[in-house]
Design a protein around this nucleic acid. Structure first.
Lengths: 172, 172
DNA sequence: GAAGACCGGTTGTAGACTGCAAGTGGTTCT
DNA sequence: AGAACCACTTGCAGTCTACAACCGGTCTTC
């Protein structure tokens, strides 16, 4: 447990999240709403290996970033949920995505969510965190607030459409 | 180069920064104003190994996060500088530090900088980035702005003093 | 109610990465 | 001239990673 040996906030954060996969898993649970082992395994953009996914899920559970519980609808399924600390990573991920979008060779359809999130600013992040608290912690969110997840997904799909068929908007 | 295989901004960011050491090196260059190999090696809180430091410096240089140039004052020394993309990590580090401070077992004297940075908000970050551009890129910063680095260091030293000698404030 | 797909994993293996100690050739300080 | 300092490099043992194959149990479908 006392692996790295400094109490610096950034060092401790890196001990939790500073590897190639942990943050990607949290990203997929957050923005892709993946809640099961199989969904994370097969729908991962980056192609994580099953043993690594199993290891990271266990690790993140021990660290208090996610919880797992049997899925009431499918007996063999395990439902994964983000905890409050993980949900509070939204601003970090928003900033990290904005930075990557600005300085690295991103692909448009994968960058659009980062763009929406950046343009939305802290107000949008708060709404998104409330939505995640509803989905993952069962806390009702303020009524009348539209779904940020739906907005992000719609923007992504619109971008995919635009890419695959650039002239479509004029027809049908 | 095409290691991980997605153009997602967060994935690409992790490919650059997602290991145990790269961000710590940037942190030390930023907040500790360490500009030489030896300073990074011996004054690192976490105790990085020399071969790993050499490897990461080379990697970060190739990725365009830092540059190195001979130090005019000492022939054998290499002066390391942050590039503009690295400087723009300030908001990311500020958020990451704030998150770590809130959710992980940090030590007070190492957390104080994260606290100052969080309380200062985006305005302070901008001032700090201007200061880093002056120190690392040679760009003059707006006149009349006090040094954020000095403020952070003073807060750190005050916290160390408070820790090592809690009753001191009443005497002498 | 049997076949086959699906579920969350585990195992084996090879290769890459990490951390530590020691050492290198050259430079600066005294 | 001698000692300390500089930015690295080397050797080695241990750990972590990736890939493919493989589990036993469960759910769907006919």
């Amino acid at each position: 447990m006392d692996e790295g040996r400094s109490g610096c906030p950034i060092n401790l954060s890196l001990e939790v999240l500073g590897d190639r996969w942990s943050l990607l898993i949290i990203r997929d649970m957050m923005f892709g709403n993946r809640r099961h082992f199989r969904a994370l395994l097969t729908q991962s953009e980056e192609g994580i290996a099953s043993n690594i996914l199993a290891d990271r899920l266990q690790r993140l559970t021990q660290l208090g970033m996610i919880t797992s519980a049997p899925d009431p609808r499918h007996k063999q399924r395990v439902l994964l949920s983000l905890t409050e600390p993980a949900i509070q990573l939204v601003p970090v991920l928003a900033h990290l995505g904005a930075w990557g979008r600005r300085h690295l060779p991103v692909t448009p359809e994968l960058a659009i969510r980062a763009e929406v999130l950046e343009l939305g600013g802290p107000a949008l992040w708060e709404r998104f965190m409330d939505e995640l608290r509803e989905l993952h912690l069962g806390l009702a969110r303020p009524s009348g607030t539209p779904s940020v997840l739906a907005e992000l997904t719609a923007a992504y799909l619109a971008e995919v459409e635009k890419m695959s068929d650039p002239g479509r908007s004029l027809t049908s």
